[in-house]
Design a protein around this nucleic acid. Structure first.
Length: 823
RNA sequence: GCCCGGGUGGCGAAAUUGGUAGACGCAAGGGACUUAAAAUCCCUCGGUAGAUAAUACCGUGCCGGUUCGACUCCGGCCCCGGGCACCA
């Protein structure tokens, strides 16, 4: 009697086995090569979605594969537990965010366990727990002492009805999502981390990251955006007595300076406020510009609008007067909040100048000693040679860069400067469900960090939320404290950290998760850096840049020595259904739990790995899941029926194999070679699975009950079970036992390629004539080019294709094809 | 708007360094087994012509180029997706 495949039964029993054996508990061991495999931890939103399943299956396959390669593997899991959704749930359902979050964590943990991931659960962490966040509060106070933290005004989305700050995603068509009020930009005091102090290192160290996709490195490179240019000071006319009597601009194209025809400033610029004092239409315009949310995408897609301030700037070289305009697309956050506009040589400036009838002064042409450039249809943005530029005429753009910078420096009106697009990291959030910023505001001492012995600053958990302002502002017990320095009554900071703060260092804390005496310890030195990090491509810049930054901060604080946190990075694509990202609002989600109930975890894991390579987006298909289930059933039956014919384990004797045994033997080792490369190097799990399916198809046709037949058959089945065990671990655990093995499959060594088995007597070559396939020929594996050519030319189809023509040349690509070029 | 990806049969995909386009799977059609169904097994499966053959031509978003040879490289365009600093 043979058993039939019952996924529910075997999965729970295998999971129980792993748990009682503590099979995946990781311990530091200097005798063994370590492998730290990390998947981006989830936000505990309530239930796992398919994107999680995909991400964590990839991580688990890599972990199990590396374990079979003999590595000491650590794969932890935790929860990115602070964030907005908990507050929304609290408002909607009257349940405190902490309760909601911890309940979600419990549920999602049970879902992860049902999927059979090989996590070391003893290292689990949740960022909303004081045991975790106390260390980031501590670290923040250390950064404060080092001068890497400062306070400044920054813009937020303000809902004037709910009296609350809104996240960008809470602003819909310019209105607050709850109140429907038109949102305004508002400036408030916030804490910043000096990430710009590390801009050069963050940029240069990208070169070290050989295991990162070029795409991600390119995005970070462009995000940091290092540029070399000149900062130029334009004096403002008739503005004596004001705080600011000039305006600074930064340009990467000082060679176009003589073509500057106006200055554009941000609506929040000090000069804009000055100009608005006596002109109500300017004031109106500034207010109108405020009614847009704080996002670069939003601002750069706005219709370009501007208003003349009536002020004039003095051109630093020509001393001519040029007007100062307010423009809605100039960002106060970036640089000095002002730009010099050269409409002839910048497309955006050109469009603005056309719209408002401002002068367009061409000064660059693509021929030397010419003044011939057409800017009637658009700006000429290439570099070239100067004209119309006084003493700089005839210089190349590159020469002019130097000469103009020198002239400005001499006159004390500007200097060469390196600039970054990267801005300092604003970490303050005006929200409840986050880590309290450990600062106390004292009237006489200013901002005072909370002393180490008073940490953690606990977030009060039993609260009500109503959607207006932060509840921390209303908790007198929380706010009213004595100043740690002078002891007089003071106020506690009520802002919390950006949740990126927590996710910037969790990778390190897993190593020392139980340490209540310090943030990290020597165990971090053993495990770090992360050998393989896996997560969504949507994190390519922000999270991954902040984590790299935090890593350098921790290194510079002596917490450990490594420059970069993640050696290898795999960015997985989105999971789509009907061509759109799965989301609750679109109603196109698939609940993995239902699939597990129906088919078992192995089928779900197999499908998500088979449907597409990990970095592609994955198009969900319900029917295709059936196919994965069918394949597992087929594999099960193959093992069952093999057990019926086999008497006892037979050993392969290579010299005794007949042709079909030899062919299968070769196929087994070709498959091992391919699958090892696919999983170990290429991360193309889909083709690794396909190769195993191909081998299974051949094996199914193999009906040879002889001694050697059984030996080859056994090896083929065992190889398939071993190679698929990282992907479908439960069923492979059982099948491995059924094949007569006592060791647990996750502890077995990965199969090795026998190079002798790969040898072939003949090879097939394609014959092309003028690049078109005309025939396939078979020649001896050691045939020389002359023999290959003769065989090819004697082929019937080939000779037909070249009749009446002259052979010009013959190209032979070893082992692949032969191309006969004729005329 | 800016930065980064992607586009191949009815569908998901494969083709790893410029060398046989469509492996593997899904769906579909035909057949075997069965009283029947499910399950399983076998066959066909990019298009056109041809006889369900041999074979020929066309075919990897569009237009053009380089090459003996282009899904792959180059130039230009169209469409889709990700990110844009307070979603995570």
């Amino acid at each position: 009697m043979s058993d039939s495949y019952n996924p529910q039964e075997i999965e729970s029993s295998v999971q129980e086995y792993w748990e009682t054996q503590q099979a995946f508990k990781a311990e530091e061991n200097n005798q063994q090569e370590k492998f730290y495999c990390l998947s981006m931890f989830p936000y505990p939103s309530g239930r796992l979605h398919i994107g999680h399943v995909r991400n964590y299956t990839i991580g688990d396959v890599i972990s199990r594969y590396q374990r079979m390669q003999g590595k000491n593997v650590m794969q932890p899991m935790g929860w990115d537990a602070f964030g907005l959704p908990a507050e929304n749930a609290a408002i909607n359902n009257k349940v405190p965010p902490a309760k909601w979050t911890y309940e979600n964590i419990d549920y999602m943990r049970s879902q992860l366990k049902r999927l059979g991931f090989s996590y070391d659960w003893s290292r689990e962490l949740a960022t909303c727990h004081p045991k975790y966040y106390r260390w980031e509060q501590w670290f923040f106070t250390k950064l404060y002492e080092k001068g890497l933290v400062y306070k400044k005004k920054a813009t937020v989305n303000w809902d004037p009805v709910d009296q609350t700050v809104l996240a960008n995603e809470q602003v819909i068509d310019g209105r607050g999502w709850r109140s429907g009020a038109v949102v305004e930009r508002k400036e408030i005091e916030q804490w910043f981390l000096k990430i710009t102090a590390y801009a050069d290192e963050l940029l240069n160290d990208l070169d070290q990251l050989e295991g990162w996709p070029d795409q991600v490195k390119m995005m970070q490179h462009n995000w940091i955006g290092r540029s070399e240019g000149v900062e130029i000071k334009f004096a403002i006319e008739n503005i004596e007595g004001q705080e600011q009597t000039s305006v600074s601009v930064y340009t990467t194209r000082p060679d176009t300076l003589m073509g500057a025809s106006y200055i554009a400033i941000a609506p929040e610029h000090m000069l804009a406020h000055y100009a608005a004092k006596n002109a109500s239409e300017i004031d109106d315009f500034i207010n109108q510009c405020k009614q847009t949310k704080v996002s670069e995408a939003e601002i750069s897609t706005l219709e370009k609008q501007g208003m003349d301030t009536g002020l004039f700037a003095i051109h630093p070289i020509s001393n001519k007067k040029i007007p100062v305009w307010i423009a809605n697309f100039v960002l106060i956050e970036y640089g000095s909040g002002a730009v010099m506009s050269v409409p002839a040589h910048d497309q955006r400036d050109w469009e603005f100048a056309k719209k408002y009838n401002l002068p367009i002064i061409p000064v660059i042409t693509n021929e030397q000693n010419s003044n011939n450039v057409d800017v009637s249809e658009g700006a000429f943005t290439d570099k070239g040679w100067l004209f119309n530029s006084q003493q700089f005429d005839g210089l190349s753009s590159q020469e002019a860069f130097e000469e103009i910078a020198k002239e400005l420096e001499t006159q004390n009106k500007g200097s060469k400067q390196i600039n970054y697009r990267l801005r300092d990291w604003g970490v303050s959030r005006q929200r409840y469900w986050g880590c309290p910023i450990p600062i106390i505001h004292c009237d006489s001492c200013g901002s005072v960090p909370v002393p180490e012995q008073d940490l953690p600053v606990l977030l009060p958990e039993d609260i009500d939320l109503d959607g207006t302002s932060s509840p921390l502002n209303k908790l007198d017990d929380f706010i009213n404290v004595n100043c740690p320095k002078c002891g007089t009554p003071a106020k506690r900071e009520t802002d919390t950290f950006d949740t990126f703060f927590e996710s910037s260092w969790y990778f390190a804390r897993y190593c020392s998760v139980d340490n209540d005496q310090s943030m990290l310890d020597e165990r971090a030195e053993y495990w770090l850096p992360v050998d393989q990090y896996i997560g969504g491509i949507e994190h390519a810049v922000l999270h991954l840049l902040y984590a790299r930054f935090f890593n350098k901060l921790m290194r510079d604080h002596g917490l450990y020595e490594y420059d970069e946190p993640f050696k290898n990075l795999l960015t997985q694509g989105m999971v789509l259904k009907d061509g759109a990202k799965m989301s609750k609002s679109k109603g196109n989600t698939v609940d993995p739990e239902e699939l597990i109930n129906r088919y078992g975890a192995d089928t779900v894991r197999l499908f998500v790995m088979f449907a597409a390579p990990p970095d592609h987006s994955l198009e969900w298909s319900d029917t295709a899941v059936e196919g994965s289930y069918r394949f597992i059933n087929k594999l099960w039956r193959m093992v069952e029926s093999f057990k019926e014919i086999v008497n006892e384990r037979q050993e392969i004797s290579a010299s005794e194999l007949n042709e079909s045994q030899n062919n299968l033997h070769r196929k087994v080792h070709e498959t091992i070679q391919k699958v090892t490369d696919d999983i170990g190097r290429r991360y193309t799990f889909n083709t690794a699975i396909a190769a195993n399916m191909e081998l299974s198809n051949e094996l199914q046709k193999f009906d040879d009950h002889s001694t050697q037949g059984q030996a080859i058959h056994q090896q083929a089945l065992e190889s398939i079970v071993l190679m698929l065990s990282p992907i479908i671990p439960h069923v492979c655990h059982i099948l491995w036992q059924k094949l007569g093995n006592s060791q647990a499959v996750h502890e077995v060594q990965w199969p090795k390629v026998d190079v002798n088995a790969l040898k072939k007597d003949n090879m097939k070559l394609v014959v092309q004539v003028n690049g078109k396939k005309r025939a396939t020929i078979s020649v001896a594996a050691n045939a020389d080019n002359k023999q290959i050519e003769e065989t090819a030319l004697s082929d019937e189809n080939v000779s037909r294709a070249i009749t009446d023509k002259n052979v010009v040349k013959v190209i032979i690509v070893p082992g692949r094809l032969i191309n006969i070029v004729v005329k």
